[in-house]
Design a protein around this nucleic acid. Structure first.
Lengths: 216, 216
DNA sequence: GTCTATAATATGATAGAC
DNA sequence: GTCTATCATATTATAGAC
C-alpha cells in the first residue's frame, strides 16, 4: 500500500477515534512515521484528504441502497438496509459527527455533499412509500407531504443514532448490537404504517441477528 | 454587565457563529477587547466557560417543558412546546452541534449532561404517552417499548433539526419559519397516533404562526 | 480586576536536499 | 517520493505589574 493510501487509512482511523476536529495533518504524518512534507506531497491540505474520503462514503452508502429501488424488495431486505446504513454511519462516524463543522470549513465539500444528499433523500423517499404501500393491508394513500416528512425523519435518525450512542458511551463500548438497535429504532418510524405481521417479522429478523451475535 | 458575564455572552455568540471548535479563549478575549489574562482570572479554561453555560441551557429547556407534566395540557400547548424546544436548540446550536466533541473533551460535562438527558427523556416520554392517549379516539394501548422508541426518535429529531438545516443553508439564512418547520417535522412523528381533527388543529396553529411571521 | 509580556506548545504549510 | 529543517501563526495558559 502506497503512502497516499496509508494516509487516507490513518486519517479515517484517527478522525474516528479522536474526533475530526482534533486531528491535523502533522498528527496523521506522525502517526504513520512519515514526514509532514511527505503528506503534503500527496495532499494539498486536510480538506483535500476529507474530500478524497467522501466519494468512498458515497459509494458505500450507494451500496446500501443498491436494491431498494426495486419495487419488489422484501421486508427482510429492508431490515438489512437499515442495519447496513447504520453500519456505514458508524464506519465514518467522524464525518457525520462533525458534518456541520466540516462543511463550514470546506464549501467545495458542502456543495458535493448537498448534491448527494438531495439525490439519496429523494431515492429513499421513493423506496419508503413503495415499501409502505407493499406491506400494508389497510387501504391508505400516502400524501407526498407525509412521505417527505417520514423520509426526513428516517434520514435524521439514521445519521444521528451513532451520535446519540456516543453521548452516553465511549466508542469502545459501542457494539454491533447497538447498530442493530439503531436499525430497530429507525424501523419504529415506519411501524405505524405497516401491518402487524410485517412488523413482527422484522422484529424477529433483528432478534435473530442479535442471537447470532451473542453466540459468536 | 461585568466582564465575567460579558465573556459568557461573547462565548455563546462566537461559538454559535464560528462553531465551538474554532473559538478559543484568546479569541473570546480579543473579541471583547480584554486581555487573555483577564479572561483567565474569571475562568480556569474554555471547558469551565462551557460548563457555566450548560445550566443556562438546562434551565431554558426546563422552561420549555414546564407545563407538559400536567396531564391536561392541550394540543395547542404541545405545538408551542415543540416550537420553543427547537428555539432553544437554535439558541445554543454550538452546544448541540458539537455535543460529542464537547463531551469528549470534558468528562465532567459529560456526566452532567447525561444526568440531565436521562431525566428529560423520561419526562418527555411520560408527556408523550399522556398526550397521545388524550388525543386519540381509536382505543389503543401504548406499550412502554413503543413510547420509549417514539420519545427517543422525537429527541433525536428535535436535537438535530438545526444541524439538518445547517447542512444546506448558512446560519444567516435560517429563519423563524425554519424553526416552525422543525416543530411540524417533529410533530409528524406523533401524527400516526393522533386523531385527524387534532392533527388538523395543530397544522392550522403552525400555519397561523407562519402567517403572522410573514406579516411582521 | 485588569493589564503586559511571554512561555510552552501545536498547527498548517513550504523550501530545498536526497 | 520522501526527508530535514523551518516559518509563520495560533493556542493555552501563567507570572507579575498596576
Amino acid at each position: 500500500m502506497g503512502n497516499r493510501d496509508r494516509i487516507l487509512e490513518a486519517a479515517k482511523e484517527l478522525f474516528n477515534t479522536l474526533g475530526a476536529a482534533n486531528v491535523g495533518t502533522n498528527k496523521i504524518a506522525a502517526h504513520l512515521g512519515i514526514s509532514p512534507g511527505n503528506l503534503y506531497y500527496h495532499f494539498e491540505n486536510r480538506e483535500e484528504i476529507i474530500r478524497t474520503i467522501f466519494p468512498e462514503i458515497s459509494r458505500e452508502t450507494d451500496k446500501v441502497f443498491l436494491h431498494s429501488d426495486n419495487a419488489s424488495f422484501t421486508p427482510a431486505l429492508f431490515g438489512e438496509i437499515l442495519i447496513n446504513w447504520v453500519g456505514v454511519v458508524w464506519k465514518y462516524r467522524f464525518f457525520y459527527g462533525d458534518l456541520v463543522s466540516l462543511l463550514r470549513k470546506d464549501p467545495i465539500l458542502k456543495e458535493l455533499y448537498n448534491q448527494r444528499r438531495k439525490l439519496t433523500l429523494a431515492l429513499m423517499q421513493k423506496s419508503i412509500s413503495v415499501y409502505a404501500e407493499n406491506n400494508t393491508s389497510h387501504q391508505r394513500n400516502f400524501t407526498e407531504d407525509e412521505t417527505t416528512k417520514l423520509a426526513i425523519n428516517i434520514w435524521i435518525v439514521a445519521l444521528n443514532w451513532i451520535g446519540f450512542l456516543q453521548v452516553e458511551k465511549e466508542d469502545t463500548q459501542i457494539s454491533h448490537a447497538d447498530l442493530i438497535a439503531g436499525a430497530v429504532q429507525i424501523f419504529a418510524l415506519m411501524e405505524p404504517y405497516l401491518d402487524e405481521t410485517i412488523i413482527k417479522n422484522v422484529h424477529r429478523q433483528m432478534a435473530e441477528k442479535l442471537k447470532i451475535l451473542a453466540l459468536a
